[in-house]
């Protein structure tokens, strides 16, 4: 009776340990292949365009509406305290430190992480990854490293653009709906924001880019068993990357802002 209860718990525990070990080894191998030649610059550029350029509309729309909503919600709260002048500060701090990188990371997990998992998963189940090996090409160097490098380099750029677009969204609502002075709004934004706010956001963006590409490629690489396996890999990539982004956000925030 006791064994019947304990066995599934033990099996689950061992399976989770095995999965963690597999992911750790995959991460280590991927990172080593990012720094060791041969490199594929053509593929890195291709991935930067795929991840960065084609994500711009999604990230831009997310940022502009987030900036707009942020102003409306903050206005409700601060107007009761007669502290409306703090709105530009709240908007720019929220966007650069938290919402810009986190929302961009989550949108990227949905758009890019899922696509990576589906593409590499399909390559796995149709023996294309085996074919790479037989053509003297290491799949880690050819498939994984370019995606990791591109995502780490591109997401900070996307977040910087998202920050600007988000602040612009806040500006639009503040000036045209809440009758703020355009000059004062912009002056307060520039005066209040500090270098650490922007730097911490960009560091988070690089980390989130790594997470999205890692989980996308890992889930695809591990997929098995045809269309169902590829579907599961896609779901795993998005869910695991999203959770890891939120966890990493907490850790990086702690490192930057806890004294």
């Amino acid at each position: 009776m006791v064994a019947r209860v304990l066995q599934p718990i033990g099996r689950t525990f061992l399976a989770s340990l095995e999965a963690s070990g597999r992911l750790a080894l995959f991460t280590l191998q991927s990172m080593l292949h990012c720094v060791a030649p041969p490199f594929y610059p053509r593929l890195i550029v291709k991935q930067m365009i795929e991840i960065g350029f084609y994500s711009l509309p999604v990230i831009g729309m997310t940022a502009v509406f987030t900036g707009m909503v942020l102003v409306l919600q903050t206005y409700v709260a601060v107007s009761r305290l007669n502290a409306e002048s703090t709105i530009p500060y709240v908007v720019v701090i929220s966007l650069t430190r938290e919402l810009g990188p986190v929302l961009a990371g989550l949108m990227l997990a949905g758009r890019v992480g899922a696509a990576m998992a589906a593409e590499i998963g399909t390559m796995r189940v149709t023996e294309q990854i085996d074919a790479l090996r037989t053509l003297s090409t290491n799949p880690f160097k050819y498939l994984i490293a370019p995606r990791l490098i591109a995502a780490v380099l591109v997401l900070p750029v996307l977040v910087a653009i998202a920050d600007i677009i988000g602040v612009f969204g806040g500006y639009l609502v503040s000036v045209y709906r809440l009758d703020f002075s355009p000059a004062i709004y912009l002056k307060n934004t520039v005066d209040f924001v500090e270098t650490i706010d922007i730097v911490s956001g960009l560091v988070k963006a690089a980390a989130f880019g790594f997470i999205v590409a890692l989980m996308g490629t890992y889930s695809g690489f591990q997929s098995r068993g045809g269309a169902q396996g590829v579907g599961k890999a896609t779901t795993d990539a998005v869910v695991s990357a999203s959770i890891l982004i939120l966890a990493a956000n907490f850790i990086i925030t702690g490192l930057f802002f806890t004294r």
Partner: peptide, 27 residues
């Protein structure tokens, strides 16, 4: 080694000539 796979295993993101030349370019 050279290998002909059962399902061909051609890289669907590359044109045919690049599939054939893959081992020469990348490998």
């Amino acid at each position: 080694f050279g290998m002909l796979f059962q399902g061909s295993a051609l890289f669907d993101s590359l044109p045919v000539w690049e599939n054939v030349a893959f081992g020469l370019i990348a490998g």
